[in-house]
Design a protein around this nucleic acid. Structure first.
Lengths: 166, 166
DNA sequence: CTAGGATTGTTCGAAATTGAACCAGCCGCG
DNA sequence: CGCGGCTGGTTCAATTTCGAACAATCCTAG
C-alpha cells in the first residue's frame, strides 16, 4: 500500500495522535471548568457563558438567537437555560419593541454580581490551564490556528456536503 | 487601575478573544462532525469514538473504565453507550477472567465494518477542517500546546483545589 | 486469614441538549 | 392590501449525560 493510499483513508499516526489529544484536552478542559464553576459558584459552564456574553454585549443585552450563535448550541437549549437563569434571578427578559417576535435578555444586578464573583476564579483557572505557558509567538500561532479553523467551518457551512456517498 | 490589577481579575481583551474563540471553534467542530456522522452513518460522535478506541487498542479490546478515560466521560455514560452499541450489534461484552469485576469490550465484525465505512468520511472531514492547512511548524507547535495543556490538567487533577474561596 | 479500603461496573433520578413541530410576526412581491 | 416565504422563540418528546449510591471484587496490612 502506497503512502498516498494510506493517507487517503487514514491519518498518519502522529497526526492521528494530535487529533485524539485535541479531543481529549478540550473535553478535559470543559469538565474541569464546569466542575469548578458548579462547586464554587452554583452555575453551569453554559450558564456562565451566557452571563459573560451578556456582560460583554453592547447595552448588556442580547437576543435569544444571538446567544445561541455565540455559545454554539440549539435555540431550544438557550430557551431552557435562560428560563433557568431567570428562575435564579440572574437574568431578565424584555420585550423587543423594534421586532415583536424578539426578546432581549439582560443581566439583573444579581446576575452581574454573580458573574463578578465567579469570573476571577474561572479566569485564573483558564490562565493556569490554558494560557499561562504560552509565549507571544505561541499565542499568535494559536490565534492563527483558530482563525483558519473558523474559516474552514464557515466554508463548510456555506456549501453543505462534500462527501455525500456512504 | 494598574495593568497588574486588571490582569489579576480579567483577561486582556486579545487573550480573552482567543479563549472565547477556542470555545466556539471546538464546539463547532464537534457539532459538525456529529452531524455528519449521524446523517451518513447513523452513529453519534461518542459512539464513533468508542469504535475507534476499540479498533486502536491491543487485542481490539478495552475495559469499561479505560474507555471512560479515553473518551473523557462519566463511567455511567460509557455503560449507556456500550449498551446502545451492543443493541446495534457493533460491540460485544466479554467477561474478564483475570479480574472478575471487569468486562472487556470488543468490536464485532459488524462493528469493525461500520467503523471502516465511517472512518474515511470522518477523517477526510477532520483533515479538511482541522489539519490540512497546517504546515509542519504549525502542527509541531500545536502538538506542543496540547502537551502543555495536558500537563497542566494532570497537575491540576493531582493537587485538587487551588482557589477554594468563593 | 481477614478486615478495611480501593476499584469496577451498573442502576437510578435529575438535568441538559437536541431536532422537529409549531406559532407568531416580519417582509417582499404581485 | 394579502399571500407566500423567512425568521425568532417556545414547546415537546427523545436522547444523552452526569453524579451519587450501590454491590461485587480485588488487594494490602496486620
Amino acid at each position: 500500500m502506497g503512502a498516498g493510499d494510506f493517507e487517503s483513508r487514514w491519518l498518519r499516526p502522529d497526526v492521528n495522535a494530535v487529533w485524539t489529544r485535541f479531543l481529549q484536552v478540550t473535553h478535559r478542559l470543559e469538565h474541569h471548568i464546569d466542575r469548578r464553576l458548579q462547586d464554587n459558584h452554583g452555575i453551569t459552564h453554559t450558564q456562565y457563558e451566557i452571563l459573560v456574553r451578556l456582560a460583554d454585549a453592547d447595552e448588556r443585552a442580547l437576543r435569544m438567537s444571538d446567544l445561541a450563535d455565540q455559545i454554539v448550541t440549539a435555540k431550544s437549549a438557550v430557551t431552557y437555560q435562560v428560563n433557568r437563569l431567570t428562575d435564579m434571578g440572574l437574568v431578565h427578559r424584555r420585550k423587543c419593541d423594534a421586532d415583536n417576535r424578539g426578546t432581549w435578555v439582560t443581566l439583573t444586578p444579581a446576575g452581574l454580581e454573580r458573574l463578578e464573583q465567579a469570573a476571577p476564579c474561572i479566569l485564573s483557572l483558564v490562565r493556569e490551564l490554558f494560557l499561562d505557558d504560552l509565549n507571544c509567538t505561541q499565542s499568535a500561532e494559536l490565534d492563527k490556528l483558530l482563525g483558519t479553523w473558523s474559516d474552514n467551518l464557515d466554508e463548510h457551512e456555506r456549501n453543505p456536503v462534500r462527501h455525500p456517498e456512504h
